[in-house]
Design a protein around this nucleic acid. Structure first.
Lengths: 235, 235
DNA sequence: CGAGGGATTGAAGAATGTCAATTCGTGTGG
DNA sequence: CCACACGAATTGACATTCTTCAATCCCTCG
């Protein structure tokens, strides 16, 4: 079996190596640490952990979340292969959030110190790092609009369309896909009660926009769904 | 009158120059462009504008906002002296949001190309840039929790306490301060109707947590207010 | 086979939004 | 200089969406 390297990683074009020359990718690859797979419900890191690495998802999916003083959980994002986790810890040097695997997942750890000094010598890497962070800021602002101004249906539609596009970018079907997160996680993320998520999904099904089979979603009317979502801005 | 430079800027310790050596600040200062003041309601940039600079607030205050396809405005943040605007444009090279002055404001423009190449030679500047972005990501996630899980009172309290702390950091009173934004902007930002903002402010006043005189807010019980806010995480 | 968590569905309740009227302050033009 | 108009803010009455509580179903796992 071939060794896993950035050079032969199928999703490198969605990950940090974008825009890097072959020799530069080799440098990057040399600092990447690939551990054993993370099992479902295992934490990649916890709030309060010392910040040492940022992480790229190689396969599987994760959720990030914070827990407030009063113990309320807030899901802040879902991460698919090629996406970067842990950027919110850079300034404080301590993770302010948690990250947990939604399914068995392979993770690439990038020691931040090494990455930072490597980036000093590779402008396009430095740039890509800023790009990834800039995207995250933009997406978070999009999400704010969603949470502030949209109805439960619009939120759900936007969520599904967003996921669909991201699956598509990763070579999977954007029409049929499996949700790896629970209804509870979705509701938490979108600011809705679990029951509301359920209701909205059945309603969207009755309108024949989607087909719901437990975790499996099929788009039967992607146009209408996108329209309802108000065409979110994607990375 | 002394020329305005990063070296003698009172808020440099809150801005990009943090952690920079004197000689490095001089380098940074050399690329900073300081234009004429921005008047109330003037736009610093608009959505769709080509991305050329990021901006540091020198004095005054601004709001950033997006406008969705259906014309709905979403206020995404308020910026005080020392804070950096425009980071969400880095990856797309086009501003995805608007920025508008809430009062007469002085702005420092930092040509991003120059800043980027300067950062390559000054690791602590590169680092500070990442810090600022990391902070913004963290704060946005905090805000998400606020919008998703908190009542109107808690949101308002969190908003006021956050502002209070930021004013304090800038050498202003954290007990008495003036809101530069309208009730409409506050409501928009917090995901509340203007009327709700009004009602909540009067309610907080009746509970003797604060004193409201139009735009002027006085904290009469900061402890209770912070408690209600759930002690947000600040940068 | 039983237990438990996830999901769905129904009914009732609460928080916030919407609509409408009023006040207040400010700036503009006669 | 005053009157008027306009927008911002406040307050009340009502409507709506979503939440909460509760019961049931279903699937998985021990």
């Amino acid at each position: 079996m071939q060794e896993i390297k950035c050079q032969n990683c199928r999703i490198s074009k969605l990950c940090l190596p974008v825009m890097l020359a072959d020799s530069e990718i080799e440098h990057l690859d040399s600092i990447v640490q690939r551990g054993k797979p993370l099992n479902t419900d295992e934490n990649l890191f916890r709030s309060g952990d010392k910040f040492e690495n940022i992480y790229a998802v190689r396969s599987g999916s994760l959720k990030s979340y914070t827990i407030s003083e009063d113990g309320i959980e807030q899901v802040t994002g879902f991460y698919l292969p090629g996406e970067i986790i842990g950027l919110d810890a850079i300034s404080s040097q301590v993770h302010p959030s948690y990250a947990k695997a939604l399914e068995t997942s392979m993770i690439c750890a990038l020691p931040f110190e090494s990455l930072e000094s490597l980036a000093t010598g590779i402008p396009s890497l430095q740039r890509q790092l800023l790009n990834v962070m800039s995207n995250e800021i933009r997406d978070d602002q999009e999400l704010m609009l969603l949470l502030n101004k949209k109805t439960s249906e619009e939120r759900m539609a936007a969520f599904l369309v967003n996921l669909s596009i991201r699956f598509g970018q990763r070579g999977l079907s954007s029409r049929v896909f499996r949700l790896t997160m629970s209804r509870r996680d979705i509701g938490n993320y979108l600011g809705l009660a679990v029951e509301t998520v359920s209701r909205v999904l059945t309603k969207l099904q009755k309108q024949e926009y989607i087909l719901v089979d437990d975790k499996e979603i099929t788009f039967t009317n992607p146009e209408k769904l996108s329209e309802l979502a108000g065409v979110m801005c994607y990375s």
